[in-house]
C-alpha cells in the first residue's frame, strides 16, 4: 500500500548566513499493508509529526525532503508523493490519503457552521450539484460514524472536545480514503472520550479495509489499536514489530525503557526514567543516536550507526547489541 524508502526530511534554515539542518526524519524505511493499523511511537520531538506530514506530501519550506521516496500504490499505480505537486497531489489527498492533523480542538473554523465546512471539504473533490443530495450524503456519513446529524447546524464552539475530534475524523473520511494518517488523534481528550474516538477510527478502518497510521506518544493507545508498532528515536525508527512482540519482548534498549516505564496493575515498584534527554536534532550524536543514554553502549555504538535490520519475521531493530548477537536478548 505504502512504501517509504530511506526518507530524509530536514528543516533547513538559514539565519545570518549560518545554515542549520534539523534532521527530523533521518533515513526512515517502512512498508505498510492494506488493512492494517500501524502505530508510530516515540517521545516529543523525535520526528513523528514530521514523518507523518511527509507521508502526506505536506512539506513546505523550511521542511525539505532531502532524500528518499514515499510511494503509494493506488489503483495499481504507484505514486511518489515527494515528487508530485499541485493538482495531482490535491487529487490524491482526501480521496485516497487523508490526514487528521494534531490539535483536535482547533481543526474547525470557529466562525463557520459544521455544515459549511462539510460543504467546503466535499466540494474540493466532487462537484456538488444538488444541495439536497449533499445534505443527505453528509447526514448519512455522520450517521454511519454514529454522530448526531445536528452537529451540522452547530458552530465548533458548541461542540465538546471529543465531538470536535469526531467531526474532524468524519471530515477526513468523507471519501473513504485508502490510507488514513492520524497525528495524536486523542491527545487533550480524557480517557473515556479517547476510547470512543479510537473505536471510531478502528471501526472506519475495519469497514473500509484501509490502512491507518496512528502517531502518538501514548503507548497505551498503541497497545489497544495497533497491529504493528514502530518506535522512533531522534528521527529514526529504532524498532518495529507486531504489537504483542514489542510489548512482550522489546529488543532495543530504548524500547525496553519505554515499556518498563508503563505502569502495570499490581506492580507497585517505582518506574525509572531514562537518564539524560533526547538529542538535539540539529546536531545529533555520532554513531547510534541513543548511545549517550544507553546503559549498554559499547565502543562501536559511538562510532557507527546501526541499520534497521530484520531479526525475525515482521521484526526489525537497529541496535548492534541485538544484530551482532543474532537475536540474543540483551540482559
Amino acid at each position: 500500500m505504502l512504501k517509504v524508502e530511506n526518507l530524509k526530511a530536514y528543516y533547513q534554515t538559514e539565519m545570518y548566513g549560518v545554515s542549520r539542518n534539523v534532521r527530523a526524519v533521518d533515513g526512515v524505511s517502512l512498508e505498510l499493508q492494506k488493512n492494517e493499523v500501524y502505530g508510530i511511537a516515540g517521545e516529543s520531538s523525535c520526528g513523528k509529526t514530521t514523518l507523518i506530514r511527509t507521508l502526506f506530501g505536506a512539506f513546505d519550506p523550511p521542511l525539505r525532503v532531502v532524500e528518499g521516496t514515499v510511494t503509494y500504490s493506488l489503483d495499481g499505480e504507484s505514486v511518489d508523493v515527494t515528487k508530485i505537486q499541485g493538482e495531482r497531489l490535491r487529487q490524491i489527498r482526501w480521496k485516497q490519503v487523508s490526514y487528521i492533523l494534531q490539535g483536535s480542538m482547533s481543526l474547525l473554523n470557529p466562525v463557520r457552521k459544521i455544515r459549511k465546512t462539510f460543504w467546503d471539504f466535499t466540494r474540493a473533490h466532487e462537484p456538488i450539484t444538488d444541495a439536497e443530495k449533499f445534505e443527505a450524503m453528509a447526514r448519512n456519513h455522520l450517521n454511519r460514524l454514529g454522530l448526531p446529524a445536528q452537529v451540522l447546524d452547530s458552530y465548533p464552539h458548541q461542540l465538546s472536545g471529543g465531538m470536535k475530534q469526531r467531526v474532524a475524523i468524519a471530515l477526513a473520511t468523507l471519501f473513504e480514503p485508502k490510507v488514513i494518517l492520524a497525528d495524536e488523534p486523542t491527545t487533550a481528550l480524557d480517557v473515556i472520550v479517547q476510547r470512543g474516538v479510537l473505536q471510531l477510527l478502528k471501526r472506519i478502518q475495519r469497514e473500509t479495509q484501509s490502512t491507518l497510521v496512528i502517531v502518538t506518544h501514548d503507548m497505551g493507545i498503541h497497545a489497544n489499536i495497533a497491529d504493528r508498532v514502530a518506535i522512533m528515536y531522534a528521527g529514526r525508527i529504532v524498532e518495529e514489530g507486531r504489537v504483542k512482540h514489542i510489548f512482550g519482548d522489546p529488543l532495543h534498549p530504548y524500547t525496553k525503557h519505554l515499556i518498563e516505564s508503563l505502569p502495570k496493575i499490581g506492580d507497585k515498584s517505582t518506574r525509572t526514567s531514562i537518564p539524560g534527554a533526547p538529542p538535539n536534532l540539529g546536531d545529533p550524536p555520532p554513531g547510534c543516536r541513543f548511545h549517550p543514554r544507553c546503559p549498554y553502549a559499547e565502543p562501536i555504538c559511538r562510532r557507527e550507526s546501526p541499520h534497521l535490520a530484520a531479526v525475525a519475521n515482521d521484526r526489525r531493530v537497529a541496535c548492534f547489541l541485538v544484530t551482532t548477537k543474532e537475536n540474543a536478548h540483551v540482559s
Binding site: 502526506f56 505536506a58 490535491r90 489527498r93 482526501w94 490526514y99 492533523l101 494534531q102 490539535g103 482547533s106 481543526l107 474547525l108 473554523n109 470557529p110 465546512t117 467546503d120 471539504f121 466540494r123 474540493a124 473533490h125 474532524a168 471530515l171 477526513a172
Partner: peptide, 11 residues
C-alpha cells in the same frame, strides 16, 4: 490549524 486542515483537504 483549521486553515492548514482546509488547505490539506484541498479547499
Amino acid at each position: 490549524d483549521y486553515v492548514t486542515y482546509a488547505k490539506y483537504a484541498g479547499v
